[in-house]
Design a protein around this nucleic acid. Sequence first.
DNA 1: TAGATTGTTAATCGATTAACAATC
DNA 2: TAGATTGTTAATCGATTAACAATC
Lengths: 226, 226
Amino acid sequence: MTYGEPTAGMAEAQRDGGGAGHERLSLGVAARLSRYLQVLTQAKKMGKETISSQELSDYTHVNSTQIRRDLSGFGKFGKRGVGYNVEALVTQIRKILRTAGQHNIALIGAGHLGKAIASSEIFADHGFRVVAIFDVDASKVGTDVGNQAVRHIDELRQVVEDEDIVVGVLAVPTHAAQGLANELVEAGVKIIFNYSESLLDVPPEVTVHTSSPAVDLLYALYFYLT
Amino acid sequence: MTYGEPTAGMAEAQRDGGGAGHERLSLGVAARLSRYLQVLTQAKKMGKETISSQELSDYTHVNSTQIRRDLSGFGKFGKRGVGYNVEALVTQIRKILRTAGQHNIALIGAGHLGKAIASSEIFADHGFRVVAIFDVDASKVGTDVGNQAVRHIDELRQVVEDEDIVVGVLAVPTHAAQGLANELVEAGVKIIFNYSESLLDVPPEVTVHTSSPAVDLLYALYFYLT
DNA sequence: TAGATTGTTAATCGATTAACAATC
DNA sequence: TAGATTGTTAATCGATTAACAATC
């Protein structure tokens, strides 16, 4: 039972790999592990000590058998009759996803959405730290948002370099998104999280992830209506 | 894309009976069609008249052969050598997803996030209309957000009934989310879009979709780091 | 015509699921 | 022990891909 290894010749280190696995996870496995992590992180905050695959299934909508299968590919993390230790599982999954460390992100846009993001803990809980907030609007530059001073976009390149920023979050109007995406790319950012509706054109080495709540709603609605 | 979101009773996959489905779409197909719709909607706004499966692939990260396969299951929408007519395809997919109509939604929370959502077009573009905004904070009630007056949460039940609201969007702090989810459920809402981190417990007939940008970032980061 | 792109097939691979023995 | 839940198997289903004829 190997997970996502279109690359041949790496069949080892699977069973009890834990963090020792060297294979790239398949897209599906990586996506699901990330979702388990989301639930586990919150469960941990709520003081929950153990969690069963069925409970994880209820919150993630992933089949419980598949959850057990996903996890057992990396080790025997559970205890029969009991479930999984929440804290230990968080640690294991972070190791598997190699995202145990801290990551600095740049936030572009100090409007309502930017403020909401800056003051939220959703990123912080997963090791992402908003180290700088930028805006093009001179009247916003210098004001405080989420205990940081808003900087002018001209400082972007320098900050990305100094802070080793890989991720940029675009919380700007749709019409301004492509231009600011270009600036992020030029500054060296590799992952752009796009909250606008704009279809962003970027070089192949840059990944764009576009938030699309309406699409998610359409999808949920379809299954409600049928 | 949302990977693997099985719900109970999704076993009815679509039979390729050649054409207009009366059958329920598989989760994967419904999720992908929703994403095509997102891109097409924006492409239409930008004045694009035709789009190829390869272009759709670039923006959605779905294989182009699969896109053609998904679409050809419902009809011959494309023109060889040219591509798909954007406007016609939007209409077709809306029909397939049975979300061609308008849907009223209730927004809970008039903070930064609530304001960002209310003034955004992301929902409106897909036929969702925010018909009411609620908050528990008396000092916010009556103020204008996105050209609507904020109402007190006590009015929720009546408004849901009057406006035939199926979807509720929770843009509130994590600690308040469960209580307000309960109110939404009691008011008769069937789909809750949760922007907080809270793990919401709801009855089985209600669907919760939790926004999780940090999870999406973790996922993107994994593929950048490996 | 020449180039582009769809619609479709067939083969393969990965994901999903039910079921249940193992074991806490 | 009795109940609960994991870890694993085997079967099935869906996704992915290459390839290419059809046709704009």
